Computed example of a mutant assay.
Amino acid sequence: MSRPSLPSSLPLTVREVKDLARSLRGALAPHVRLAHGQALDVLARAAGLPDWNALAARYAGPGLGAPMPILRVYDSGLAHRFYVDWLGFDVDFVHRYDAAAPAFTGISRDQVALGLSEHHGDGTPGSVVWIPVRELAAYRAALLADPAAPLRPGIDRDAPGGPTMSVLDPFGNELRFCEPDL
């Protein structure tokens, strides 16, 4: 049996496929609600492949991919409320060896991908991730518009590299959102 070939109209990078999945979710809402991972699987099946893993593997080529920093978290639910509900990340996948095992969650927003791990030994509490951002003031305003915002971060306009907004997650990890001086 031959492997199906991807139609030439499909995006050329994994990031473009993820963007297409976000667009699909938006187009179907509010009538059909899909998780991000479900939308990725739908696109894979549309390309004649069994699931997202198979589709992502088709895009893999020689060379290095983008890194995924792994942050240590102690409570997946609290991490979800912070990273997804407040910061606006999407859940790409959740992996557990079994129902009682710690979770490893992959999240992303635009070009940023992070791993959130409950596994002892993954990541170090208190890690710092530097995240370049366009329109930092607008992103901050959107975060502060949430009446249940867990934090009220400011912007340090004199930070090295450009205006920076530091946000501490509930587990002591620091996200530094920076609008680089170019």
Rank of each mutant, 00 (worst) to 15 (best):
V17W: 02
P30E: 01
I70G: 03
T124D: 14
P67D: 08
S8W: 14
A66P: 06
L10E: 02
R81L: 12
G63Q: 04
G61M: 08
L12G: 12
V14Q: 14
G77K: 00
L34G: 04
S9Y: 15
V128Q: 10
L71Q: 02
F104G: 00
I107M: 14
R72W: 07
G123S: 12
A39L: 07
Q111G: 15
R58A: 14
V91N: 04
V94W: 11
A137R: 05
W130F: 14
L114A: 03
P67I: 06
G115D: 13
F82N: 00
G37L: 06
A137I: 03
A79H: 05
S127E: 09
P69S: 06
V14E: 12
E118L: 15
R33F: 15
V84I: 14
H80A: 00
H80E: 03
V42D: 02
G77C: 03
L24G: 08
G88A: 10
V84H: 08
A27P: 05
F93D: 01
V91G: 07
L64Y: 15
F93E: 00
G48S: 08
L12P: 01
F82I: 02
P62V: 09
A35V: 06
A113Q: 10
L40R: 04
V128Y: 14
R96P: 05
L34M: 08
R134I: 12
I70C: 11
P102T: 04
H31N: 07
S9N: 06
R81N: 10
V133C: 05
G63L: 10
L10G: 03
T124Q: 14
A138M: 05
P62S: 14
V94Q: 07
L136I: 11
G77F: 09
D110P: 01
G61I: 09
V14C: 13
H95Y: 13
R45S: 10
R15L: 14
Q111T: 13
L114E: 05
P102R: 00
R15Y: 13
R109V: 08
L24V: 11
R15P: 03
L43I: 07
S117R: 03
I107Y: 13
D51M: 12
T13G: 09
W52H: 10
W86R: 00
D19A: 10
L49D: 04
L87C: 06
L20A: 15
L12W: 11
Y74A: 09
D92P: 04
I70E: 11
A138N: 06
L55T: 01
S8I: 12
I70A: 08
S23Y: 14
L24W: 12
P11E: 08
G121A: 05
V73I: 13
S9T: 11
V32H: 05
D122V: 03
A21K: 00
W86Q: 00
S9W: 15
A29R: 00
P69F: 12
Y139Q: 00
V94I: 12
P67H: 07
A113F: 15
D75M: 06
L43K: 04
W130R: 01
Q111D: 15
D98L: 07
A35H: 03
A56R: 00
V112L: 13
D75K: 03
R15K: 04
G63V: 07
S9C: 10
R45D: 11
D85T: 08
